[in-house]
């Protein structure tokens, strides 16, 4: 990554006053909001995000939220967690309201190169949301997709028990996310506390079980989104198995378009020298091997 010349990057950004089509609550206080934003729905790639102004000028800065799904080139759907002022205000909007947003932003997952034979998606908590469009985009391009998600709370997507048997986990570990199964991904869930059908432990243990198990995988790539510690561990597993691994990183942002240097993530630049890259332009998806994991 050559960051020495502050390359402008990224495609066209649209600002839209997007009518709210629906804003539903999900288990655990999460929400799924659907917005009419055709220019973004037509151009957004998996892993890209929008920057939303919460309603009624509740906050000064916009809030970055991943595009979870695009619908018919018309609408975008976002899954979000109400954690603070901005996302709480967003939770209160209703049908007919309009939301000011800009996007699509960020690089998104690289889907241009030759796809792997096996895609392994690793999510921590809310990291599940941005991985869904990736799973959907990979369907038909890869031979198989796995999704492993770790969570201590309710996930933002419905879960149930899978009818599919997976050789590398105990048969009673069968919690799955049907929406991911519907796009061809085999899923298993993990939690640190005992929950029926969940693997008890770290989500990355499921990744290790798969990689060390009997399934034929061929060329394999990991894609991860979640808390820093989980990503760091996933990156270490990828390095150990000599696998490519993309991680989606969340940083606090100012402008969202590459102008202010607020969202910097430390990466190895040309010649292995640590430099700061912009999560809003060079990211939010980074090659795990390029991230300086001890910087945080």
């Amino acid at each position: 990554m050559d960051l020495s010349t502050h390359q402008p990057a990224g495609g066209t950004v649209y600002r839209i006053s997007a009518p709210v089509i629906a804003n539903r609550s999900l288990p655990g206080g999460h929400r799924r909001i659907r917005l009419r934003a055709p220019a973004i729905a037509r151009t957004a790639r998996p892993g890209q995000f929008v920057n939303i102004s919460p309603p009624l000028a509740t906050t000064l800065l916009r809030r970055p939220l991943g595009v979870h799904r695009t619908i018919d080139g018309q609408d975008i759907e976002i899954l979000f967690q109400s954690v603070g002022k901005g996302t709480k205000a967003l939770g209160a909007v209703g049908e007919g309201d309009e939301i000011d947003l800009i996007g699509p932003l960020g690089n998104g997952f690289d889907l241009a190169g030759e796809p792997p034979e096996t895609a392994v998606l690793v999510a921590g908590g809310f990291g599940l949301a941005p991985l869904y469009p990736l799973a959907a985009a990979l369907e038909g391009k890869v031979d198989r997709t796995y999704l492993f998600a770790g969570t201590e709370e309710d996930l933002p997507m419905e879960t149930s028990d899978s009818s599919v048997h997976l050789s590398f986990v105990d048969p009673d570990i069968k919690a799955t996310v049907p929406e991911f199964e519907a796009v061809g991904a085999q899923c298993r869930l993990a939690s640190l506390r005992s929950r029926p059908s969940f693997h008890k432990g770290l989500v990355t243990e499921l990744v290790e079980k798969l990689l060390d198990g009997p399934e034929p995988l061929g060329r394999t790539k990991l894609y991860a989104c979640g808390p820093w510690g989980m990503l760091k561990k996933t990156a270490a597993i990828a390095a150990e198995h000599e696998l490519d691994c993309d991680v989606l990183l969340e940083e606090r942002m100012g402008c969202g378009v590459g102008a202010c240097m607020s969202c910097s993530v430390m990466v190895y630049g040309d010649g292995g020298r640590p430099v700061y890259a912009r999560a809003c332009v060079e990211g939010p998806v980074f090659d795990a091997a390029s991230v300086v994991w001890d910087a945080k």
């Binding site: 502050h6 800065l61 100012g254 202010c260 607020s262 969202c263 910097s264 700061y276």
Partner: peptide
């Protein structure tokens, strides 16, 4: 290189930044 993150925080009606002059 600039300052270590986080580099930006929102305040009531304002923004606090500490980029640390990251520039090429």
């Amino acid at each position: 290189l600039g300052n270590p993150p986080p580099r930006i925080a929102e305040t009531p009606a304002g923004v606090l930044n500490a980029i640390g002059l990251q520039n090429p």
